[in-house]
Design a protein around this nucleic acid. Structure first.
Lengths: 190, 190
DNA sequence: CCAAAAAATGAATCAAGATTAAGAAATTAA
DNA sequence: TTAATTTCTTAATCTTGATTCATTTTTTGG
């Protein structure tokens, strides 16, 4: 029972009992062990994931052969590689569980059918996409407004509980600097 | 007649003649002179803009009192400040015409009504938002993968015609570095 | 067509954060 | 409960791109 997902959808649109059942029949719930992968490079991404419990990360390997994290998804966030999902081309990303997770999985083809059966879902995903876009824009704004150190302090004060959940080197990667630099600014804090 | 907009929508969803007329009655077309503003800080953003001709930029003034451009919109792109639009709070951004523009304007309240009259529009905007989000993610990926010089060269080779349309200092701002640094890497090119 | 404003260039110095290379501390698994 | 792996820290040196300030070139408006 993807209770979280149904509740999340109901925050944005009205669902009849029948709608909710159609949605339930279209999704599966998957338990994902810490460090397990939902997507790896060269695979074609055919699913989208809703985190009902735990934390996922999306990353790729950059030129310098380091992991570069571009997104995290915690409870009630969606995650997928939209470019592979839409183009049908192989992904260049990893989606990996940072913690043991419970994830609601929807296959893209099945989701497209679902849009026909429950048209109000188009509205739900429109709103969710708009929020995701707004958050991404905000992030770009922060990248260009503040130094790495400022962004670290800002992020820490904004999400003190989240930074407890992930290794520091992952936060460094997400914020775009090295673990060494992270240590340096944390040491200063004293 | 916002012909471009109707055509753009028709690329993603089917519209009846009646739908198209409803849309037409909901929007206005505005000619915007180069350097004129569609939005300024402290105003509440109540509209969303579709560029049918010309180029808009979205920017803010950062801590160092420099303009920081976060988005451009050329033909067939939407632009607005979603965070002000959705929250009803004053904006912190400028939206300004980089060239003389023709812009299709939709009032947010009117758009919400329009979604009820033409529900298929939810689908159109879902797809548009998803693309916008994917593009923003791609941009974050580039920021973290490449040096400023590499990003400049990559952007130039990808959009050679676009960089002819805008002053260099605007591209420098969009890419997140100074006009002086831009001159430096352009000089090297010889 | 010319004055004024806007945009681009150049060079010297400076600073934020990367790199490299250890080593220490904390987790994990057998 | 200890060995192995993962994560975090420290410090020296190096690089990219910012800052400052001056000059030149281009565009715009009257």
């Amino acid at each position: 029972m993807p209770a979280n997902l149904i509740n999340h959808i109901k925050k944005f649109i009205e669902l009849t009992e029948a709608d909710a059942e159609l949605i339930q029949s279209a999704v599966t719930v998957k338990l994902v062990k810490k460090k397990a992968f939902l997507l790896q490079p060269d695979q074609i991404c055919r699913e989208t994931y809703f985190v009902s419990k735990g934390c996922l990360r999306l990353y790729f390997i950059n030129k310098k052969l380091n992991e570069q994290i571009t997104q995290f998804a915690i409870e009630n966030w969606w995650m997928t590689d939209y470019s592979s999902l839409e183009s049908g081309k192989p992904s260049t990303y990893y989606i990996q569980a940072v913690e043991n997770c419970e994830v609601v999985v929807i296959n893209k083809t099945r989701l497209d059918e679902l849009f026909k059966q429950v048209p109000a879902l188009e509205r739900y995903f429109r709103i969710v996409q708009q929020r995701a876009f707004t958050a991404a824009q905000k992030r770009i704004e922060y990248i260009y407004s503040f130094s790495d150190e400022e962004r670290y302090r800002h992020f820490s004060s904004l999400f003190p509980d989240f930074i407890q959940r992930i290794p520091q080197y992952m936060l460094a990667s997400y914020l775009g600097f090295t673990p060494q630099f992270m240590s340096k600014i944390r040491a200063k804090k004293v």
